[in-house]
């Protein structure tokens, strides 16, 4: 995945966003202009690693290109996760069964494999996802 999306924190990897110095609005990924106040003073900021599920759905068929996930399609879920005081981030979810997903459930960031690369010693390609957090 694109390494510029992530940063390291003491708690582990976190998504890297921007925060507007003028109005405090956040974006993900980083961008140079503020979509709320139209200012242009955005600072890099690590996004929260935990949040709550705001909405979700499932992907029942293998998307067309530019999707590059593993050829044999395994249904997956995506959702928006509310990161308190920051924003709602769109992400894959590790749980693909809609009956086991609910709005408001606590989730945390994880890096998960989404594409096998058989001949690559580095192993599968990873992307970010959210997984139900265990209290």
């Amino acid at each position: 995945m694109d390494p510029s999306l992530l940063t390291d924190t003491a708690e582990g990897p976190a998504l890297l966003g921007s925060r507007c110095s003028d109005c405090g609005a956040h974006t993900f990924p980083r961008q140079g202009g503020c979509p709320r106040c139209t200012g242009a003073d955005m600072q890099d900021v690590p996004l929260a690693r935990t949040g709550t599920l705001w909405s979700f759905t499932t992907q029942g068929f293998r998307p067309k290109p530019p999707y590059t996930g593993t050829e044999a399609h395994e249904p997956y879920a995506v959702g928006y996760v509310e990161l308190p005081g920051q924003l709602l981030v769109e992400s894959r979810l590790t749980e693909a069964d809609p009956d086991r997903l609910e709005i408001g459930m606590p989730v945390e960031l994880a890096l998960v494999p989404f594409r096998d690369v058989p001949d690559d010693a580095d192993g599968p390609v990873h992307t970010f996802a959210f997984v139900r957090s265990t209290p």
Binding site: D2, F56, T57, Y67, Y76, V78, R92, F114
Partner: peptide
Amino acid sequence: GSWYGETGMMVTTQFFGMK
């Protein structure tokens, strides 16, 4: 960024499901 399509989120049907 291209990562958005590569990881399977550039799909209109998902948006409607989530909305």
